[in-house]
Amino acid sequence: MDIIIQIEHLKKHFGKLEVLNDIDFTIERGKVVTIIGSSGSGKSTLLRCINLLEIPDSGRILYEGKDIMSGHLNVNKYRSKVAMVFQNFNLFNNKNVIDNCMIGQIKVLKRSKEEAKAEALKQLRAVGMEDFAYARSTTLSGGQKQRVAIARALCMNPDVLLFDEPTSALDPEMVGDVLDVMKELAREGMTMAVVTHEMQFAAEVSDFVVFMDKGVIAEQGTPDEIFNHPTQERTKQFLSRYSNR
């Protein structure tokens, strides 16, 4: 078992609200873990802590065995290794598609323009957005934006990709395109942690499923265990809301 990220006793609160309460969680190399759970259960906060967009109150996050908050690790370098894909895409509005994919490579990884451009085109091809390389990011549809956002993250050659509800802001007809890209990445062995409400996708692609409820991990296991044989009452309740639709 090759663990890239190990989370131990993670806690986080906003004001009086305990959002994460003693979370233990691992991300294995080459595996896909999905995180499911009802709104407000702390899924986004967990992902954001991994990328240090939120700073945990206590507990440890180990990246390849090293504590990311110990001060010995370069935070920006680390972040580029665990790139994130957001629900609202967050493409840089002042840049066109290819510049969105190049800026991080040039500024963070210190690649030359030519190298960065070649890598950007390669990743844009992988997500099927090569033809839009010189389009302004603001002119794209949601599904296109999200695929560019995935390419932008891939350009950093990360060890892990974090996805926070990547299809929740999309029109239904666009969801498939983005999920297809993610499935392909999974097939190629990309390590991913995905927060999603797409249960079908989670069942199909995950190696491991985590069900979160009220700031704790209520149940975890293989997709078969979680979706077909859940043991906890709250897991059953949560899943029944999806199967009834």
Partner: peptide, 12 residues
């Protein structure tokens, strides 16, 4: 989100 996206790929 613009700031967070930039941070998430390691920009200072």
């Amino acid at each position: 989100g613009q700031t967070e996206a930039a941070k998430s790929i390691g920009m200072t």
